[in-house]
């Protein structure tokens, strides 16, 4: 990457960054004034994927855990809200704490025994677990079996029905801003620094007194809760939820955004989600070959720019790992195969 230093210095300035944030924010807030229904719909979709990417980023980007079943976490939140509203007649807002609690409990149950496993095992466990969630939702009556739950009533917010497109847009925009705030605070907290340390060198972190399993679990739970919350809002937005949402493809999309955007970088997630949705709209006419193009894109990005479009600047993750590996390979022998 050859970038002129002056451009880099200009981009690195505080004032430039704040101007950029302000411009994006003004654009986002005023979008419904001049955009038509189609554009608002697309923008809403981008906001939804931003939520998912930000949540997934805590697990994949911050903690460096490979999660291939993020869509199941969305499903847990969505089903909790859907069941409570539809079967028990709860108010939407009252279901949110329950949704958070359910996501956290399930994440703990999955995470506690499996987070001590090596990275690629964890990937398979999360994938297997998301299949379990899908199959259980398909087979149980309470989740509406294969057709799922439909007819979820849309809540009223400040006297405006949530089903209005611009209302949905604003609610999701507010959610995204909250998630961004949480992500940034998390990253700069003691917890975030511990995660970064752990991600870069687990053994060193452990030696320094970082409680590795506890921090991994905490990151996993926080990421899952964020996904669950996004799922709750998704369920009332769509008015229905079915097990067909919980697919590997959906989880792969989310992971693609996180990797494409640049693991661990909050603005990267926003950029990645926007790019993903815009590309999806452009390729909409291509129909069947859309996923094929995504696949090729994913391979090319990983080969030529493995750190993502907007990578994390601080002790950059990928090269340091590689250097460390090269160093360690000189001295140690591999385990038996």
């Amino acid at each position: 990457m050859k970038q002129s230093t002056s451009l880099r210095a200009f981009l690195g300035k505080r004032s430039t960054q704040w101007t950029g944030i302000l411009v994006v924010l003004i654009f986002a807030v005023t979008l419904p004034l001049y955009a038509n229904i189609y554009v608002i719909g697309v923008a809403w979709n981008a906001l939804f994927y931003m939520l998912l990417a930000l949540g997934c980023n805590v697990i994949v980007g911050y903690a460096g855990l490979c999660d291939l079943g993020y869509s199941s976490k969305v499903a847990i939140g969505a089903y909790t809200t859907a069941i409570l509203m539809k079967t028990f007649g709860w108010n939407f807002w009252a279901t949110l704490p329950v949704s958070i609690l359910a996501s956290a409990i399930i994440a703990c149950l999955v995470g506690m025994p499996t987070l001590r496993l090596r990275g690629d095992y964890l990937a398979i466990v999360t994938l297997g677990f998301s299949e379990i969630i899908r199959l259980v939702a398909r087979n149980l009556n309470v989740t509406g079996s294969a057709s799922g739950i439909s007819g979820i009533k849309s809540p009223v917010i400040f006297g405006v029905k949530f089903s209005t497109p611009w209302m949905q847009y604003f609610i999701f925009l507010i959610l995204v801003i909250i998630f961004i705030f949480v992500s940034l605070r998390l990253k700069r907290s003691r917890f975030g620094r511990a995660l970064e340390y752990m991600r870069e060198d687990e053994d060193a972190a452990r030696a320094m007194g970082v409680n590795v399993p506890r921090f991994k679990l905490l990151a996993f739970v926080i990421g899952s809760v964020m996904g669950g919350l996004a799922g709750s809002f998704y369920a009332v937005k769509m008015g229905s939820f079915s097990p067909s949402y919980v697919t590997f493809t959906e989880s792969a999309y989310i992971l693609l955004i996180v990797v494409l955007g640049g693991m661990g970088k909050t603005p990267g997630m926003l950029l990645g989600a926007t790019l993903f949705i815009v590309l999806q709209e452009i390729f909409r006419n291509v129909g069947n070959s859309r996923m094929l193009i995504f696949g090729i894109l994913l391979v090319l990005i990983m080969i030529f720019r493995p750190q993502g479009i907007w990578p994390d600047k601080r002790p950059s993750f990928l090269p340091s790992r590689r250097e460390r590996k090269q160093l360690s390979e000189r001295t140690e022998t591999h385990g038996t195969g």
């Binding site: 493809t249 992971l255 994913l298 391979v299 080969i303």
Partner: peptide
């Protein structure tokens, strides 16, 4: 992730 891409 590359392997997932190839699989897709």
């Amino acid at each position: 992730i590359v392997a997932i891409g190839v699989s897709l």
